[in-house]
């Protein structure tokens, strides 16, 4: 599959099997593939992958620092900050780095050059080659509240010449959107429960807004009820794979093994899932290569 396709694996609800599916797809493919763990607040693809010679890359964001002696207390920095990260007080500006989105507006508008941007580390990216898988994972430093800059840095490693699988954070807010953005396809992993359905609907709305084609994978498909199926049918959303609820899958998972270890026959289904995705994307006629 020498197609430089980017497939995001997202869900809405947490714990539906995004990582399980992402890692299994990468292993099933058996040829060069890049796997990006963009769930940077809790990356866990690494549990299922043997890693050697781990490379580390530091990721920082720019945060304003004020040179008090040069500040004329005009307050323009606070006015331009749309993230409310700066307040202007009679004693000068007060910066809340945890609210800063590193837009640089304050440094540009400061008439006296009192504000400069300084690098603030937010996390690291670990890279390794494990068999056919080029693996990258972002790890946020504890206490850092804004993950999108790190997620973007991890996504810089998507492959220009082969398939890239992106394991996304749960939810449908900025981290998830940053992770799925510019992908060619989104696989939404869900489960047949009321929470699974509720969050699937949110993820479907998000995918539609982003104009990225998507389909559903139903995990633990024979548990719960059939409302997810009914919803997908009514909305004409393809269900590309059903992973049954099996004790051996749960046991394998708890030992750091994948679905393929538990149910080897699923490998063929995972490869056809990838082929289905490629056909859907090709039918839509646009690949965001590179």
């Amino acid at each position: 599959m020498n197609t430089p396709l980017n497939i995001a694996v997202a869900s809405g609800k947490g714990g539906t099997g995004k990582t399980t599916l992402s890692v299994s797809l990468a292993i099933a493919l058996g040829e060069s593939v890049t796997l990006l763990d963009c769930d940077v607040e809790e990356p866990n693809c690494h549990i299922f992958i043997k890693r050697n010679n781990i490379g580390k890359e530091k990721v920082s964001v720019l945060i304003p620092k004020v040179e008090k002696t040069r500040c004329n207390k005009c307050g323009n920095c606070a006015k331009i900050c749309r993230y409310n990260a700066i307040v202007s007080l009679p004693s000068g500006p007060l910066i809340f780095p945890e609210l800063c989105h590193s837009c640089g507006g304050c440094a540009r508008i400061c008439p006296t050059g009192a504000i400069t941007e300084k690098k603030e580390p937010i996390g690291v990216i670990e890279s390794s080659l494990s068999g056919n898988i080029k693996f990258f994972q972002g790890i946020m430093h504890v206490g850092k509240p804004i993950s999108p800059p790190l997620i973007k840095a991890v996504k810089m490693h998507k492959s220009p010449d082969h398939l890239t699988i992106i394991d996304c954070p749960p939810g449908t807010s900025c981290p998830m959107i940053t992770a799925v953005k510019d992908s060619d396809f989104i696989i939404l992993v869900t489960e047949p429960t009321p929470f699974g359905l509720n969050d699937l609907k949110l993820a479907v709305e998000t995918s539609r807004k982003l104009k990225i084609p998507f389909a559903v994978v139903l995990n633990r498909s024979d548990s719960g009820d059939n409302r997810v199926d009914e919803y997908c049918k009514n909305e004409s959303i393809p269900v590309l794979l059903r992973i049954p609820e099996m004790r051996c899958i749960a046991e394998a998972y708890s030992n750091g093994k994948t679905i393929i270890d538990a149910v080897p026959i699923i490998r063929g289904q995972l490869i056809s899932l990838l082929n289905d995705v490629v056909s859907i994307v090709k039918a839509k006629g646009k690949i965001n290569a590179g």
Binding site: Y83, N84, A85, V87, S88, L89, L94, F96, L99
Partner: peptide, 14 residues
Amino acid sequence: AAQGAGIQTAQNVL
């Protein structure tokens, strides 16, 4: 406000 409501309000009140 999406974020920072408290500090912005404090500035405005002051």
